[in-house]
């Protein structure tokens, strides 16, 4: 008899992974960390694809039900070729996060270059043409998510400035124009002894709930065989996100399936976005082992409940 037991709070879709390199219409190495958005019933996912050169760029997947996707014939964003953007994107574009705000789709992503990894912002109206806006951090900072609305009249974001000896916390900061940022404050730090003991970072753009801003973040602990990346949740005050209301004690998803355990980077589940459906089901899209894109679902109330436990 087969024993079935849900090991994680999140329910993995039985058809996982939803995308692998086999689904990409052009030659590349891998597809993983993708950020979804639902527009008029259509699901789009901005995908991180790693080319055979070794650096990453973005492609676009489209689907009707959130589970089956087709990938566009050509990549949609490649490392900048001109001026400022060429200088700071020579090692690729990584981990996009889409936020819809004031009628625009903003894409926060990591730009990698000889100067280090830093956060950049681009925007699009239609996912056909993409306009780069600015670099919005110094090097040593990534995992940036933009809040979907202004807080006290200002744009707000979470990011992960790298601290001393490779540890890193999630910080919040504010802006009036999306280009210049200030009032940086720490939100949550790694927890010694826990699954997120070593380093953490924002994953999914914050979701507004009546209990606060819900953030699905990633963290890892170090083992003798390297890091194990998992997901957890934190609820932040609606008016002041630096104020933490609750934080999940347990991880909500841990690498378990083969597509999460084995790949270019073993033992990684890494989300870059989620869709909250009208029936309160949340579809969380995540990279498995830096080699595939997967989806898992959960009821938002269960997620909030878990955050308080």
């Amino acid at each position: 008899m087969v024993k079935r037991r849900e090991r994680d709070l999140l329910h993995r879709w039985e058809g996982n992974p939803i995308l692998t390199v086999e689904d990409i219409p052009f030659r590349c190495n891998t597809v993983f960390n993708g950020s979804p958005i639902k527009i008029n019933g259509e699901y789009l996912i901005l995908l991180r694809v790693e080319g055979q050169q070794g650096y990453s760029f973005f492609a676009l997947a489209r689907g009707e039900d959130g589970y089956y996707f087709d990938v566009d014939q050509e990549p949609v964003m490649m490392p900048g070729k001109q001026g400022f953007f060429a200088k700071y994107e020579t090692r690729g574009l990584e981990d996009p996060r889409i936020t819809f705000l004031d009628g625009q789709y903003y894409i926060l992503y990591t730009a990698a270059s000889d100067y280090g990894s830093r956060i950049a912002i681009a925007k699009t109206d239609d996912f056909k043409s993409y306009e780069r806006v600015s670099f919005i951090s110094e090097p040593g900072n990534k995992d940036c998510v933009l809040f979907p609305e202004k807080i006290n009249g200002k744009f707000a974001r979470l990011d992960r400035p790298l601290g001393s000896s490779d540890v890193g916390s999630i910080w919040v900061s504010y802006s009036e124009d999306l280009i210049h940022w200030g009032y940086h404050e720490p939100v949550i730090e790694p927890r010694p002894g826990y699954w997120d003991a070593h380093r953490i970072g924002a994953s999914v753009p914050p979701i507004k709930t009546d209990k606060g801003w819900l953030e699905i973040y990633h963290g890892f602990k170090m083992t003798s065989c390297g890091p194990i990346y998992r997901m957890g949740t934190v609820l932040m005050d609606l008016q002041n996100p630096a104020k933490v209301i609750a934080r999940s004690g347990e991880a909500i998803l841990s690498p378990r399936e083969k597509y999460e355990r084995v790949g270019d980077v073993n033992n990684v589940v890494f989300a870059c976005g989620a869709i909250v459906e009208s029936d309160n089901q949340v579809k969380i899209y995540y990279g498995g082992a830096d080699t595939s894109l997967c989806v898992a679902t959960v009821d938002i109330d269960k997620l909030i409940e878990e955050t308080f436990s």
Binding site: S137, E138, I179, H180, G182
Partner: peptide, 12 residues
């Protein structure tokens, strides 16, 4: 880097 108000900084 540059700032409009000495508090928010960008264009590093």
């Amino acid at each position: 880097s540059e700032s409009p108000d000495l508090i928010h900084w960008g264009n590093h």
